[in-house]
């Protein structure tokens, strides 16, 4: 099947702002469901730039393609049902999609660290925490058994696990959910990756634990000079840790901005509605949901994909043509034809 590019590619503004290449650059990424039928694009032409030592939030509802995007970057898509159909992923100037699987294995861990949503299923219940850490360490570094163990204890201390010497010999089921996520983070940073990808790292956790884990990720990103992508459906998480945000809807980026700009001056109606849907303790404002459900892959509307759920949509402007991503300023984009005439509500107005 032929894929027509959904948007005109504009050189990313952030590249020009930095002298060195960014940590990670994604250009024209198309991810599709493949199988018996013709490939069905789920992510359609996604551009993303992660500056060095930046924490980027990739926000979207379930089915928006944010998780697929983060998996595609680490080349962890299961190639049988989901594949990258087009585009490039460049890590410090090196195209990841052309690497062999063997080369990619050394990139994973050493250059890209991953944290997944569910710490319960991401750890092997049959092995101790120490064994899982040391086996990763010894695969990537030339370390003796004792040295690897010392490093494992050190890593557990770094991620805020009390009494790491005892914990290192425990099994995953012996520790709490929050602590398991800390172990997952220790695994992810064990080989000092330059880029950390955290896929919904706190969705399965309680409120107080969530705050602790986000704080930990932010601190580690700073001390280890990592560039970080956090995918989430919760803008509250973004407010907590992210420098910049890309909002995804139905396989596209609809708005990209610094966290402050996005929260105080949203430029896309979908972002506005996401902000209104947030519960806030002690603030007398009604939580508003977004009516309807996001379109499914293969049923994306012709024009603006958010139009059927948007309170601002008008015919024919919003439904007739494909809406391009408009570049407003370096690092600031929005995909809305009515943007100039709308005044959207941020959290402080």
């Amino acid at each position: 099947m032929e894929l027509t590019p959904v948007q005109v590619k504009v050189p990313s503004a952030i590249v020009t702002a930095h002298a060195r290449p960014p940590a990670l650059q994604v250009d024209g990424l198309v991810i599709g469901l493949v199988g018996r039928r013709a490939p069905m694009p789920v992510v359609t032409g996604l551009d993303l730039t992660l500056a060095r030592q930046e924490v980027l939030g990739l926000v979207g509802e379930s089915g928006s393609g944010k998780t697929l995007t983060s998996l595609a970057i680490a080349r962890l898509l299961d190639g049988r049902s989901v594949q990258v159909l087009a585009g490039t992923v460049t890590l410090f100037g090196r195209d990841l999609l052309t690497l062999s699987e063997a080369q990619m294995r050394s990139v994973r861990g050493k250059e890209i660290g991953m944290i997944f949503q569910d710490p319960m299923t991401s750890l092997d219940p049959a092995f101790t925490i120490g064994y899982q850490l040391t086996s990763v360490l010894r695969r990537h570094f030339d370390l003796s058994r004792q040295a690897a163990r010392r490093r494992a204890v050190e890593l557990l201390g770094m991620v805020g696990i009390g009494d790491p010497r005892r914990r290192v010999d425990q099994y995953p089921h012996q520790i709490s959910g929050g602590m398991r996520q800390r172990v997952m983070i220790a695994l992810a940073i064990s080989c000092e990756p330059k880029v950390l990808i955290a896929d919904e790292p706190t969705t399965a956790l309680d409120a107080t634990t969530q705050a602790q884990i986000l704080e930990l990720i932010k601190d580690l990103a700073q001390t280890l000079h990592m560039s970080t992508i956090i995918t989430t459906h919760d803008l509250g998480v973004v407010a907590e840790v992210c420098d910049t945000v890309a909002v995804m809807y139905a396989g596209q980026i609809v708005e990209q901005a610094t966290t402050e700009q996005l929260f105080y001056h949203p430029q896309h109606p979908y972002t506005e509605r996401l902000l209104l849907a947030l519960p806030r303790v002690g603030v007398e404002q009604e939580m508003l949901g977004i009516p309807g459900a996001p379109p499914r892959a293969g049923q994306f509307p012709e024009g603006c994909r958010f139009a059927p759920r948007c309170g601002h949509a008008v015919e024919p402007d919003c439904v007739a043509h494909v809406v391009p991503l408009e570049h407003l300023a370096p690092g600031r984009t929005a995909r809305c034809v009515r943007r100039p005439e709308l005044t959207l509500r941020g959290v402080r107005t």
Binding site: T208, A211, E240, E260, L278, R280, G282
Partner: peptide, 21 residues
């Protein structure tokens, strides 16, 4: 618990102190 629930406002969020248990 109040301290842990997000303020949904990045500036306020980062300015405030947090009770770490």
């Amino acid at each position: 618990l109040v301290s842990a629930s997000p303020a949904a406002d990045p500036v306020a969020q980062r300015a405030r102190h947090r009770i770490v248990l």
